[in-house]
Design a protein around this nucleic acid. Structure first.
Length: 638
RNA sequence: GCCCUUGUAGCUCAGCUGGUAGAGCAAUUGAUUUGUAAUCAAUAGGUCCGCGGUUCGAAUCCGUGCGGGGGCACCA
């Protein structure tokens, strides 16, 4: 006689055992119709799960995250079912739900083609139409392993072998077709609906390990309604329009070429943007008490051996052998060079914390498959800095860095920031007790920020634990930018020291930090965040002056000169095209302000302003224009 | 690095089953002197990514290298 407590606190009493669907029916007919899955005492179960004791029950429909995830999970299953109906020799492996959809990994010799995806999709819809009832059975491990081995499903057999003893091995049936699965599932294939789409095929390693064989992964998306599916596809399309590689080309910011994969050829406008960010950061860091330095790009191998880079980071390093057979490395990080600067002259505890910044260009030989526009390159400029301090100063300094970073992200249009904390990796230098200290100090700082954070086990740098600053852009995507690392190892390896109060020599702690992270990556993110339409102050070319006819060229040239004198960037378009043509061209180039100059303007010493994405025109006295817009030409006017 | 996919004019792309390349925009020249998203016309532009092979003949088919894209693995 189970008593069932509902989310609203009401109780339902039943004479006998009941299933989830019967509970839903008791509440309302329409709920029973819409119900997809239930939670019994917080655990998700099938609708026909038999309830035989007192418990709390929650019923989910496609309007809940739980319901939607179950739809996606079921769509993944139907995908596997469809694939095996069409391509009998294919083995199934795993098929989880991911953000916005699902994937399923298959083992098959022949690659799946785009055409195959269409066929599979059709087959999936057919299976939905068949409305096959779902059945769940619990098998013994041995039976399940034997069964799947006999079927030739070696991956499934492996999966069952790795299920912990205490867990049930449940098998879900859709008619004849069946699969090992934890569940829950919808009660029949018809419940899924047809609001799904297979999106792409890709390779993926079995169990995510690059030593294992590669499987074929089919990605798909699945929703509660046609509208949701269409909205999602639309969102993807919109995101593609923001692609920084596309916009970079269209806006003439940069390009890449074969001779140097993963290295940027910056064009005039892209470089202007780059320099603006550096100028801005330089200003912020100066205020925050950093001293800017610069260190060599190429350093002798012995330094990298001492620092540990040669051994732990060597696979990513470019090296160079000189004609006299000496081996140098092109720096993949700025830290050893910075320590060398610290080591010049005697340092006192009174000098600490000592903050040294460097816009250092580093080279890392990244795997070819990792390269991705500006977001993943082989040569990049870090807005790097190293803070030498005492152990006592760590937490406070970390907090100061965090505040600076949040301030800067805000200026650049990012308000939503989360932290990722990573502790000691397998490949590392230094004793565990040193790591204990570093991790504790950094974690303390993370907590003190009161920001949301996640913990990434084993993903720290080889010399210390780190936090990464992840920001969310205008369309909800997360990007990893800044980083802050606590390092008890490199300073001692490279013999850094300071004289303490009592006259003894001590080894300082070093904090590594980069706020943009990589200027290249950050610019890529900025482009996508703003869809190329930068705020006025950061825009690489802020103003284009357009004379209506040749007659007004001289005036336009004078206007442009005055704009430059007022500290803004400007270009005069003297081409013999008509006004409409020029407006079209510069609007596509996303120039924030177009100034039109004709007779009216010359006569009144004014300009007519046309702002990007607005066809309103505003006439303004030239001096007033210069005053107004130079005031807007700084970060705080965002 | 691995799997799949892709590489044609400055850009975006067309070129069916093999018969030595085409459009739009951009560029150049000429005409037009224009008031808010493409004025008209003419001209010029290409070792069809590189190398090898099959073939009487390769942009097209095959192999291989390099680059790009989507993922995986790796990562700022």
């Amino acid at each position: 006689m189970p008593i069932i407590t509902l989310p609203d606190g009401n109780n339902l009493k039943f004479q006998n055992n009941v299933t989830g669907i019967e509970v839903a029916e008791k509440i309302s007919k329409s709920l029973a119709k819409q119900a997809l899955v239930i939670a019994v005492d917080g655990e998700l179960k099938d609708l026909n799960f038999i309830i035989n004791k007192d418990c709390t029950v929650k019923i989910f429909t496609s309007k809940n995250e739980e319901g939607l995830e179950t739809i996606r999970h079921d769509t993944a299953h139907i995908l596997a079912m469809a694939v095996q109906e069409l391509f009998q020799e294919t083995q199934v492996t795993i098929g989880p739900v991911i953000e916005n959809g699902f994937y399923y990994d298959f083992a098959r010799k022949e690659p799946f083609t785009e055409d195959d995806l269409k066929k599979i999709e059709e087959k999936m819809k057919e299976i939905v139409d068949r409305d096959v009832i779902t059945k769940r059975e619990v098998w013994s491990r041995d039976k399940a392993i034997k069964h799947f081995k006999k079927k030739g499903e070696v991956y499934k057999a492996q999966l069952i072998e790795s299920i912990p003893d205490r867990e049930e091995v449940s098998i879900y049936f859709h008619g004849e077709w069946h699969d090992l699965c934890r569940g829950p599932h919808l009660s029949s294939t018809g419940k899924i609906g047809k609001f799904f789409k297979l999106t792409k095929v890709a390779g993926a390693y079995w169990r995510g390990d690059s030593d294992n064989e590669m499987l074929q992964r089919i990605y798909g998306t699945s929703w509660a309604s046609q509208k949701d599916l269409d909205d999602y596809l639309k969102r993807i399309e919109e995101a593609e329009k923001r692609d920084h590689r596309k916009l970079g080309k269209e806006m003439d910011l940069f390009h890449f070429r074969e001779e140097s994969p993963g290295s940027v050829f910056w064009h005039e406008k892209g470089w202007a943007l780059f320099q603006k960010l550096i100028d801005y950061m330089r200003m912020k860091q100066d205020i925050a008490g950093y001293k800017e330095i610069n260190t060599p790009e190429v350093l002798d191998r012995t330094l990298w051996e001492k620092s540990g880079h040669w051994e732990k980071f060597g696979a990513n390093m470019y090296t160079s052998t000189t004609p006299d057979e000496k081996v140098f490395a092109i720096k993949p990080m700025n830290c050893p060079g910075c320590i060398e600067v610290f080591n010049q002259g005697l340092k006192s505890y009174k000098d600490l914390p000592l903050k040294m910044s460097e816009f250092g260009k580093v080279h890392r030989y990244e795997p070819s498959g990792a390269l991705h526009g500006l977001l993943r390159v082989r040569a990049f400029t870090q807005d790097d800095a190293h803070i030498f301090c005492t152990e006592d100063q760590i937490t406070k300094e970390c907090l100061i860095v965090t505040n600076l970073i949040l301030e800067i992200y805000k200026d650049l249009g990012f308000e939503d920031v989360i932290l990722k904390y990573s502790d000691r990796p397998n490949l590392r230098v230094g004793d565990d007790n040193v790591w204990d200290k570093a991790e504790t100090a950094l974690l303390e700082a993370v907590k003190a920020t009161k920001l949301e954070y996640s913990i990434n086990k084993g993903e720290g740098a080889f010399y210390g634990p780190k936090i990464e600053f992840v920001l969310r852009d205008a369309i909800g995507r997360d990007w990893q930018c800044g980083t802050l690392q606590v390092d008890f190892n490199l300073p001692s390896r490279l013999s850094a020291s300071y004289v303490d109060k009592d006259g003894s020599k001590k080894v300082p702690v070093m904090l590594h930090r980069a706020l943009f992270g990589s200027l290249e990556r950050f610019i890529g993110i900025l482009i996508e965040n703003y869809a190329g339409k930068f705020p006025f102050w950061i825009s690489p070319l802020q103003i284009v002056v357009i004379p209506i006819t040749e007659e007004f060229d001289d005036y336009a040239i004078q206007v442009s000169k005055k704009i430059k004198k007022a500290g803004m960037s400007s270009h005069v378009d003297l081409k013999k095209h008509n006004l409409n043509n020029k407006i079209k061209e510069h609007s596509l180039a996303k120039i924030p302000l177009l100034l039109i100059c004709g007779k009216k303007e010359v006569d009144s010493n004014s300009v007519t302003i046309r702002k990007l994405d607005s066809n309103k025109q505003e006439n303004m006295d030239l001096d007033l224009f210069l005053k107004t817009f130079s005031a807007l030409n700084k970060a705080s006017s965002n």
